[in-house]
Design a protein around this nucleic acid. Sequence first.
DNA 1: TATGAATGAGACTTCATTCAT
DNA 2: TATGAATGAAGTCTCATTCAT
Lengths: 221, 221, 221, 221
Amino acid sequence: MNASTSSPTDTAHKRERRKHDRPGELLDAALQVFVEKGYAAARVEEVARRAGVSKGTLFLYFASKEALFKAVVRENIGRHVADGLRQVAEFTGPSDELMREFIRHWWQSYGSSPAAGLSKLLVAEAANFPSLVAYYRQEVVEPEHELVRQILQRGMARGDFRAVDLNLTPLLIIAPLVQMTLWRFTQTVCCTPSVAPDPTALLEQHAEMVIRGLRKDGSAP
Amino acid sequence: MNASTSSPTDTAHKRERRKHDRPGELLDAALQVFVEKGYAAARVEEVARRAGVSKGTLFLYFASKEALFKAVVRENIGRHVADGLRQVAEFTGPSDELMREFIRHWWQSYGSSPAAGLSKLLVAEAANFPSLVAYYRQEVVEPEHELVRQILQRGMARGDFRAVDLNLTPLLIIAPLVQMTLWRFTQTVCCTPSVAPDPTALLEQHAEMVIRGLRKDGSAP
Amino acid sequence: MNASTSSPTDTAHKRERRKHDRPGELLDAALQVFVEKGYAAARVEEVARRAGVSKGTLFLYFASKEALFKAVVRENIGRHVADGLRQVAEFTGPSDELMREFIRHWWQSYGSSPAAGLSKLLVAEAANFPSLVAYYRQEVVEPEHELVRQILQRGMARGDFRAVDLNLTPLLIIAPLVQMTLWRFTQTVCCTPSVAPDPTALLEQHAEMVIRGLRKDGSAP
Amino acid sequence: MNASTSSPTDTAHKRERRKHDRPGELLDAALQVFVEKGYAAARVEEVARRAGVSKGTLFLYFASKEALFKAVVRENIGRHVADGLRQVAEFTGPSDELMREFIRHWWQSYGSSPAAGLSKLLVAEAANFPSLVAYYRQEVVEPEHELVRQILQRGMARGDFRAVDLNLTPLLIIAPLVQMTLWRFTQTVCCTPSVAPDPTALLEQHAEMVIRGLRKDGSAP
DNA sequence: TATGAATGAGACTTCATTCAT
DNA sequence: TATGAATGAAGTCTCATTCAT
């Protein structure tokens, strides 16, 4: 931001990188602004300002505000699920532990990342951008559910978990994770600790509840 | 409409009733529109149209779009929690059943009602209307958590539930209910059944998971 | 205003008179409001309120805001000049005294009356209502100038005044009177005494200046 | 407009100059429109049109209609009084001549200038913008009166003028000048010559009346 | 006659988008 | 490529006027 805090080499380097990374910097800034204000209340000028360019420049890279918005969504819909699936296939320990891993990993790779703003954004703009919701479901929600489904199936097959509905249960396992994600963007101001508690403790408590909820009736703790 | 079908008293009453009912009709229409589009994208003219009045009429009852929005939130923040608290105090059966009752009741009295749109609205507009978020938390979220906390305490006191954290657990119990609420307004368009499944089945499954999650280690099903 | 402050007879009487005087009360209220705010910024509802009737009632008596405005102007263009002309014809004393009388009388009968607001109104709205300006000039300004012209002619004929231009001098004599009138509506707020001084002293000083300005070169004081 | 007629530097300058001149052009147009119509009846779109720009451009330079109005007033409250004061101090001739000079100068530097519209504007909007009236009085009216007061004091000290009230007399001397100013904007339409006479002749006649009004009783013409 | 709820044209203002530089 | 001044469509809000009661 400030030339006095970086060496000439850095600045020059930064400027070089700048030109190349413009779209990326704009997308980062746009994600921030869209998440904060929502689509309609977001100002393209503020996106440009946060990216350090002028309003006109933004339109060199994105044809319209809507195009920018869609690019933000598509860009941030990661592929963090893919390696999740691999993990399940390779995992050899007890299903309890796999479930705990999944929950921790979900939060690390998505829930606590900047991309998590997408969840808020898509809740807020669902009615205005139905195609994005469909896209998001296909690319994110469904694979995620499939991943949980596989964990459940593995646990049931191994006799670690009782028999549960494979359509409903993934929703219930993921719901608190998504809620924690939404809270990150809902409680910027207020924040009694009881409402925005320590994420780690909450994740562990969630995992504990889930595992106990899935335990077979006669099994030991 | 026709003088021959109504006495002067009736017609006078009709006039009166209209004036009396207008704000309510406008608030209902406004809730719909705000939930659908979000605050910024909502058009006051559409609110007026859905309420069957002209643009100008809306401003006879609400000083501004923002005042309308705030009135919508305040109006729909119900008192459905109050009788919940009474229910707990009076309940005499096993805590399992009380928890099931709470979950069913939450959905009936709020989650499936039109007022449930508030949840989406407050997620979407949290950053733009922090005071409303604080108000909502105080009036709705905190009392709700307190209610669940009392159910948990009762269960632990009676030996029905194992010892759990009284700050974290309510969040985990309510989170899936809120998620179900949000889905109602997120999946207007698409809707594969696996994503928007039968609420009743989901509620029962949620209750089952929660109860098992709270069960004492040695206890029978 | 308040029934408790007047006997029943008074009130009844007042109400009787009311109906009859509605237009007059509306015109009085309208003069006030138009003078205070100007035509465009004046609200018909405020006129109605000050007249103690509803907005709808105003339109029973005046077809439109513009019609009300024109009626206000026409109504307040008095005939105070007419008797002024008679006075001149009948006056037998020295012209000094006649001039002093004219100045005092102008202020008493117009400058200090509520109708004086017209002067401000016509300055403000001249460009928007040229026909009213023409009407005002014909009915008020020209007769007034003619009156001063007659006083000057009389004074010159009697040898009391030096020879002066009969077109220019009336303007110069009346100008300070009109300015005093405008100040009444311009200095509602501030009012250092040097700017809004005692009207009587100012009138006397004006008369003194005018009379000396008209005195023949060799004449004694 | 045409690249062949201007060097790059020129065109860059032209751009710069436009941005630099815009506020001034808008203020000029705004003064016109506000004086013609009054504040409330003035349309910002008309101001923009007269300045040759679009509605939106106006708001790049002035935050609101009210801000534009206030800028118009502040901008046109000149410093034409300052050099008047110097003139008095340096003047060596008879006070008659100084007074004549003041009257002529007042008209030249203010009364006949576009800024003279301020007088009409402030009469019209006094009640709606009291702070501007106070500002105007402080910056214009009071210095002007002080200037006349100094001329009078000088005349009395030199024995040129009789003793007069130093608070009242400046008002009487300036009043006809202000009236002449107001007439410029009041008589756009009608205009019988007797009502809007030759300003020069009127100024001379005014000066003559004032000087005679100030003359010591025994003094020769 | 009197009311005041309802209307809708029109004003101010914002902001995504364009384009000359 | 980058800028930012300029645009004008569209939104919120006001208020003169109407009309059912």
